[in-house]
Design a protein around this nucleic acid. Structure first.
Lengths: 212, 212
DNA sequence: GTTTTTTCTTGACGACTGTCCAAGATTTTT
DNA sequence: AAAAATCTTGGACAGTCGTCAAGAAAAAAC
């Protein structure tokens, strides 16, 4: 085969791979939405297919089995949800501003992306029972911790203070508040959510201490 | 009917009810263990029956349906797990002792009752998708918060300090540490668990402040 | 335009699910 | 000892599940 023909072949092969991957991603996104709506326990392949424009059989053309599909959906979640607060951090010029905008973003995504967030907690928990996507969960959890840490260190910096807790503690605290707010939001308990919102600035201040 | 005969009838009726309830409880406990082992998504009635000494048909004699059974299992969980730390609180005579024994108990139950704890988080999360046992979940969550608050207030008292956070914040923080420790424990990540253990005293101190 | 390759649909499979029920076993009451 | 009430079994039921394969449809290559 000539060099030119070889290059042409490669280009075709690459295009096919790209197309294949694009469809995989498309189906993984449909899976993500179905999971968010129904939860891990109630999501079937036929239901996923109905949330796409294909029939259920196609899923086994693009994925080895259900696990393979769910792993890909988890990775889609990662791409979506782990840089939410970075623009707030980059944009804020004072501690009060960062705090206020963080709180606003926190409760905005709580309401806006509630089903996606409950899916995250569902998946993290399922990984306690089945190992097959645990590695992805741990990776995402790490990225979430990093994101929280960027917020807290920047907040401390603007306050001319230092963090009062480790990255891990800061993460589980804010994540705990979020989990609780999500539970009460989905339970229709608006006043509890409002109380958590009013309290979140105090929680942030708890995580930094004034003196260096 | 004479008064005596009436009383006798009542006694019989009560005995029957007691027996019925005893069997219900027995089956609910078997359900709880099956759920802890397999998780909500993978627990079937036949599997539950196999973890008891009865056949699967009997479950519909004592419970209206699967939901009814799971609700009862959730309530069994509540009876088991929400007074763990009270003896530590009652027994401790110094802040250091309370802190050390709390940490010890914390990581003891983490390992000892790991499957039961992961079930709790699973059920709390399922209640974000289905409403039918959400009330029980919220009640249990409240009891867990109360328990944590008893620990923290007593710890602050012994330290001659006051709590630095609200009951809710204190709860989500310690519960967040626990969730994270559980995840890494079940992932076989012993050194991360050890790090969380080493850090837990600092987290407790974060939740109380020295000056009144 | 025809052949080849890729993509997708449809229907079937065996296994499993919650639910219900007829029948029998067991216990309690008379 | 007979009768009645209670308890338990095991199988049938209508669905649903993940998986797979044969063939239709579409796209690409020639």
């Amino acid at each position: 085969m000539t060099e030119v023909a070889q290059r042409k072949q490669d280009k075709i092969a690459r295009r096919q791979v790209d197309k294949f991957d694009a469809r995989r991603t498309e189906l993984a996104v449909a899976t993500l939405h179905t999971l968010a709506e129904l939860g891990y326990a109630r999501t079937s392949l036929r239901e996923i297919a109905q949330n796409s424009e294909f029939s259920h059989g196609v899923l086994h053309y693009y994925f080895a089995d259900k696990r393979d599909l769910i792993i890909e959906a988890v990775r889609q979640y990662e791409r979506v949800c782990v840089t939410k607060y970075d623009e707030v951090v980059a944009h804020a010029t004072s501690a009060d501003q960062l705090r206020d905008e963080f709180v606003a973003m926190f409760f905005d995504t709580l309401v806006q992306d509630a089903t996606l967030h409950r899916l995250w907690y569902d998946l993290r928990n399922q990984s306690l029972y089945e190992e097959y996507f645990r590695a992805d969960v741990l990776e995402i959890d790490g990225h979430r911790e990093d994101m929280v840490w960027r917020v807290i260190t920047r907040y401390a910096e603007l306050r001319q203070a230092t963090p009062a807790a480790s990255p891990g503690t800061a993460y589980v605290t804010l994540d705990g508040v979020f989990q609780r707010a999500l539970l009460h939001h989905l339970s229709g308990n608006a006043e509890t959510v409002a109380a958590l919102r009013a309290e979140l600035p105090d929680v942030m201040d708890l995580l930094v201490k004034s003196s260096g």
